[in-house]
Nucleic acid binder design. Structure first.
Lengths: 146, 146
DNA sequence: TATTGTTATACTCTATAACTATA
DNA sequence: TATAGTTATAGAGTATAACAATA
């Protein structure tokens, strides 16, 4: 076996470097954690959302979302109101400041994404997308059985 | 922007799940950390190596390698001797027990890798490999300028 | 009884830098 | 003065589960 060619190793090293270069934007310039950024993005895309849906949409767990929401609310980026359908839950929604913040971050991280993918043709991007999707499905099968 | 389609997000989520499913093998069954596993793999492939080369070969930093080496040596999986060319450095080499451990872990992680890639044709694998390589080069350019 | 969301706590990882010994 | 490697320490992130409120 060669570690350099071992797919999980390559994927881990690449993802770590990519995450780092993206995270630099929202941490250094906007003082957001990764979890806060994900919650912000999820809410910006979908409008008002229940906490449960944010959890699904961000691949975070309930504690991570709970803390990210607390901080974002504290910073004035989101509003939290009781869920009329379920007294235990909440409905989350960005404030105007939250939407403004999102609109500042998005072009910056998108520029970085574009830079990373710049050497790929549209066909290569489609092939990458398809391959990652297939690997993702297989990974889920593995994780479920553990 | 859609978080679900955002490449860095997808890559991070996938890599985390893949890492987790692989790490389960060497942590739960062999009580190795990720760093120890990488050092073990690097040494098994290349034979005797200087610490500096292990650092390059594993994408770990010097503290991570220092601690992993310490633990592996303590567990009897590797030998550390002074580098004859440089009194500050060391030459690392697996012991027979280290090689035995490696030979136990490899087929298990390779089976998982094979499972993950099973839905991809050889052409799709080559396309994935090529795409990840290109993205890797771009990522390095981004990381260097930060 | 089960679920939503919060909180506490312990644990692991990471980052920074100080330190030694050699070069 | 710079480098190889070790150690210390603080900070961030992660995991587990206990808990209150509601279903």
């Amino acid at each position: 076996m060669n570690l350099q060619d071992f797919f999980p190793y390559r994927l881990a090293v690449l993802a770590e470097a990519v995450s780092r270069s993206i995270a630099l934007v929202y941490t250094a310039r906007f003082n957001l954690t990764r979890d806060e950024w994900r919650v912000l993005a999820a809410l910006a895309e979908t409008g008002a959302m229940k906490t449960t849906h944010v959890i699904e949409h961000t691949t975070l767990d309930k504690m991570q979302v709970s803390r990210a929401v607390k901080q974002l609310a504290c910073d004035g980026y989101l509003d939290r109101t009781g869920d009329p359908d379920d007294g235990r839950g909440y409905v989350l929604q960005l404030t105007p400041q939250g939407r403004t913040l999102y609109r500042k971050v998005v072009p910056m991280v998108q520029a970085r994404e574009a830079f990373l993918l710049e050497d790929l043709t549209p066909e290569e991007r489609a092939a990458l997308d398809s391959a990652l999707r297939k690997v993702w499905l297989r990974t889920h099968r593995l994780v479920r059985q553990d």
